[in-house]
Simulated scan of single mutants.
Amino acid sequence: MQDFIYCGQTAHVFFGQGSISRLEEAIATVGGTRALLLSTPNQAEQAQALTRGVESIIGVFDGATMHTPVEVTDTALKHIEASEADCLVAFGGGSTIGLAKAIALRTDLPQVAVPTTYAGSEMTPILGQTENGRKTTLKSPKVLPELVIYDVDLTLGLPVGMSGTSGINAIAHAVEGLYAKDTNPVMRMLAAAGIEALAEALPTIARKADDVDARSQALYGAWLCGTVLGSVGMALHHKLCHTLGGTFDLPHAETHTVVLPHALAYNAPAIPDSIDVLRKALKNDDPAQALFVLGRAVNAPASLRELGMPEDGIDKAADQAVENAYWNPRSLERDDLRNLIARAWAGERPAS
């Protein structure tokens, strides 16, 4: 076994059906007495209905949106100041949890995350923000939520399409965690378990959205995959998705779903050990093709074109992908990356 360094992330989790009922306890656990509830406009009604009666919640900000624009964070900070909130409750997916992280970075307010998707952001000290059309990421312990409530009931109403793309987004975290520069045996074990759990659960959810066992398995898998994302570095897949999402304003989970099989195929020749793990987890000799097929099984978009990316953006994205050097197990070659992006744009199968 090779030498490695392991640095675990602090995690306090309430997991189970109905665990939203412990929100008052969760707020007190992180030291809060005046919590601001955060959500997207679409989830505002649900968030308020499920937290009605929680005396510690003293206000609501429902302006969270994709890619965490800095101007939205600035607006939310004014609500923080006006309400004198001393705690944040983020109800929703990556957009809302991202907003809470952005606020925490600037204020040090403790966070209670209540995820309703499988994005896994709640388990990471990573924040992605968008300003002037460019998305940047940072890593800081200040943005890691102090407590997470995983209530399976909150995912039962998650639309099938969003369930699939959100779950494959989570799988992407673990796939890259397998071959990260700073990976270790603990993270590889969590990654394999998370990938297997989600790959088994997502097609069942696509067929029967209210399957509690499958939903529980998917939420558990998302927790594991999010932990991997928060504990080790990422590579080509995540860098490329951030470039595409920030530059062309593409939906986050859908972009990850489209790009993942292609990014894995690109790196496959350089990561034989990780490919062996993925063969077992996905029960398929060609993991990149298996992930492409999984996308079709959950009725996810197959192409960046479907997500709104213009064809003339392929070259722009390829240029940006090699603009800033970052670690990847295979060297980043502009022409090969352009081919990867072009195949993803067209919805073709990944290159073997």
Rank of each mutant, 00 (worst) to 15 (best):
I5V: 15
H12A: 13
E24Q: 14
A26Q: 06
S39K: 01
A44I: 02
E45W: 06
Q46F: 11
A64D: 03
A64S: 11
V70L: 13
V72N: 10
L77G: 09
F91R: 00
A104M: 03
L105T: 12
S121I: 08
P125H: 05
N132D: 15
N132L: 12
T137D: 00
L138Y: 07
S140Q: 03
K142V: 13
L147S: 03
V148T: 14
V152G: 05
S163T: 15
S163N: 08
G164D: 03
S166N: 03
I168F: 06
N169S: 10
Y179H: 11
N184V: 08
V186M: 13
V186A: 10
A193I: 01
A193G: 07
I195E: 00
A197F: 09
L202G: 07
P203C: 07
K208G: 11
D210R: 13
D211E: 10
A214G: 09
R215W: 07
R215K: 12
G233W: 01
M234C: 11
K239W: 00
C241N: 13
C241W: 03
L250W: 08
L250P: 06
P251W: 10
H256V: 09
P261F: 06
N267C: 12
I275T: 10
V277I: 14
R279V: 00
K283P: 00
M309P: 05
I314G: 09
D319E: 15
A321R: 03
Y326G: 02
Y326N: 04
L332Y: 06
L332T: 11
R334S: 11
D336K: 14
D336R: 15
L340V: 14
I341N: 05
S352G: 11
